[in-house]
Amino acid sequence: MTARVQTGGGMSTRVRISVALAVWGLLYSAYRAYYALGGTAGMFGTPVSQAQWLAINAVGAGILLVAAVLPPATLPLWRHRSGRRAMLALCWVAAVGCVMHALVDSVQRALSLAGLLHIELPFWRTLDRRTADLQDLLFNEPWFLIEGLLWAALALTSLDAGTQRRRWLAGAGIAVAALTAIGLLSATGVIGTFIVG
């Protein structure tokens, strides 16, 4: 039922995508760990609390490290029916969450750069808004978008090319569209605060 799609060298597509997710997650985890250890290159301002800045980045690096290890560590689950269902659900949540995050934040940052939206960033004592917007738009959000697409690709390795795949993709697409709309309406003040990612 869950055929392994083979590619050159005998490694399954699922294994290759899991490794890509691990490497991608480790890269972003290292970026956060650099700031958690006191690195300052690429800083776009001065945080109100240096200790809080270090702690936030340490927690972020830890979460990203877990996210990086998860795909290869859970490869055996794909062989069992209940494990496969759990992994498809995990892939769906990760794909929807990451893609939605990338879309909402990218639009916010683009609006901020255009002077059409003021993003409240009370964590910073001093801040170069343009640099912060560009860093998020060109670095952080592309990472989330690629991460989400990789999780979606991982799920597709276990879905047949017919109805299963269409249902999974349609459900994810509808969720991304709905959550992105809510996130943007909230970010632009049309509705109250609604944190979606």
Rank of each mutant, 00 (worst) to 15 (best):
L90I: 07
A181W: 04
T13G: 03
F144E: 00
G173C: 14
V69A: 15
P72D: 12
A36L: 08
I174K: 10
I174H: 10
P122S: 09
Y31V: 06
T2K: 00
S12E: 08
A181I: 05
D133K: 03
E147T: 01
L65F: 08
V104Y: 06
L65C: 09
A58D: 08
L145M: 05
L70H: 05
A114W: 05
W78C: 06
W78E: 11
A170P: 11
A132R: 04
A178G: 09
G171S: 07
W53A: 00
M11R: 14
L138H: 04
S18R: 06
F194C: 14
R129N: 05
L156M: 11
L154V: 02
R165H: 13
F194Q: 15
R81E: 14
D136F: 02
R125L: 10
I191W: 09
T46K: 07
V59Q: 10
A20V: 03
H101R: 11
R79L: 13
D136M: 01
S186P: 11
R129I: 06
V190G: 07
L159G: 12
V99Q: 12
L21Q: 02
R129S: 07
R84F: 12
L116T: 00
Y31I: 02
M43W: 01
T2N: 03
R81T: 07
V96H: 14
L156I: 08
L75C: 14
A73Y: 09
G39I: 13
L75Y: 13
Y34S: 11
G62W: 10
Y34E: 11
V99L: 13
T7C: 01
L64Y: 06
G83R: 08
L75A: 15
F194N: 14
A170R: 12
T157A: 09
V196L: 15
H118A: 09
L70M: 14
G8Q: 00
I146L: 11
G8V: 03
G197F: 10
R32T: 13
R81P: 00
H118M: 02
G115T: 05
G197M: 07
L145G: 07
W78K: 03
L134Y: 03
Y35K: 11
L150T: 00
P142V: 00
A110M: 05
L121W: 11
A68W: 04
Y31S: 10
R167Y: 13
P122D: 09
V107N: 02
R109M: 14
A41E: 13
A30P: 09
A153G: 08
A30I: 06
S12R: 08
Q135S: 04
L159M: 11
T46W: 06
L145V: 01
S112G: 03
C98S: 15
M11H: 10
T46N: 08
